[in-house]
Simulated assay, not measured.
Amino acid sequence: MSHRPDTLAHAPLGRESAYPDAYDPGLLYPISRTANRAPLGIVEGSLPFVGEDEWHAFEVSWLNGRGKPIVAVARFRLPADSPNLIESKSWKLYLNSFNQTRFADRDEVINTLAQDLAGAAGAPVSVTLFDVDAEALAPKCLPGECLDALDIDVNDYTPSAEHLAVSAQVVEETLYSHLLKSNCPVTGQPDWGSVMIRYKGPKLEREGLLRYLIGYRQHQDFHEHCVEHIFTDLMHHAQPSELLVLARYVRRGGLDISPWRATPGLAPPSPQRLARQ
């Protein structure tokens, strides 16, 4: 696979693109994580977190050896320490290149996906295929307490860590909100999502936390970098001993993206999807 420069100048996102009619791994467009991490003080090779970018693809199809179409849902898990993320439209076009391609069996499809995605990401990518009515895909609810019923005034729609405040009380709790919204850095299209924060440390002032999360409403960035932004702001201003930030974004183009970042040593969240995804 030919790797492209670390730029969006030639990415398919925001451009009119022809849908492929033959398998083509060259459609995948890797983007270096480094440039967006640098302003947050995140240094490659010394990440302050562990995590993954969990993707679900709901438009996966190929032909079996006799030419009969097979459909499935795919779950991909891309490690946060991979050098690259993969631009979402290129991922969609790549998956569509399977539509008229024959494969001997599901194992061949899985192995092909894993090899191509690892080549673009620069690290191994976990691939699981589900039948479209699989119980594992049943919607679930986020654990913890929802912040969305708080009756607050909001006047700031860009991220500001000044809203974050803590008390002297040390707690261990899980909070979530469905009010997360950010915007694509290329097209400006809205990206809707839910965010969960699990932490142990000084108690977060909830109204300030909700104002902070709502502050992403006009922010332009990739899903993965929004989660890393939230993680680094909470670590700096709240200084918890343990922290996990998970965002579950609503699907667009048949793909949803759910990045999570956590302090090393925490167990990863269980793969799942929400009803809104």
Rank of each mutant, 00 (worst) to 15 (best):
M1K: 13
S2A: 12
H3N: 14
R4D: 05
P5N: 00
H10P: 08
H10Y: 13
H10A: 14
A11L: 08
A18Y: 13
G26W: 08
L27G: 06
R33D: 02
G41N: 10
F49T: 00
V50E: 14
E54H: 11
E54P: 09
E59T: 02
E59Y: 07
N64H: 04
R66N: 10
G67V: 10
G67C: 10
P69C: 09
P69N: 09
V71D: 08
A72G: 03
A72E: 05
V73G: 09
R75I: 09
F76Q: 08
R77I: 09
L78S: 14
A80T: 05
D81V: 06
P83G: 02
P83R: 06
P83V: 00
L93F: 01
Y94F: 14
N96M: 13
S97E: 11
F98Y: 15
T101F: 13
A104P: 01
V109D: 03
V109Y: 04
V109N: 05
A114S: 02
Q115K: 15
A118S: 15
A120V: 04
F130T: 08
A138H: 13
A138G: 07
C141I: 11
G144F: 02
A149T: 12
I152W: 00
D153K: 14
D156T: 15
T158R: 15
P159G: 11
S160I: 00
E162C: 09
H163E: 07
S167I: 00
S167A: 07
Q169M: 08
Q169Y: 04
V171Q: 02
E173H: 02
S177L: 03
H178L: 08
L179G: 02
L180A: 13
K181Q: 15
K181S: 13
N183M: 12
C184H: 10
T187S: 11
Q189N: 06
S194C: 04
I197N: 08
R198G: 07
E205C: 00
R211T: 00
Y212N: 08
G215E: 03
R217I: 05
Q218W: 15
E228F: 03
I230F: 07
I230M: 13
F231W: 03
T232P: 05
L234Y: 10
H237G: 10
H237P: 06
A238E: 03
Q239Y: 07
Q239T: 11
L246P: 00
A247Q: 08
S258K: 07
P259V: 12
R261H: 02
T263F: 01
T263M: 03
A267Q: 11
A267W: 02
P268A: 15
P271S: 07
Q272F: 11
A275Y: 04
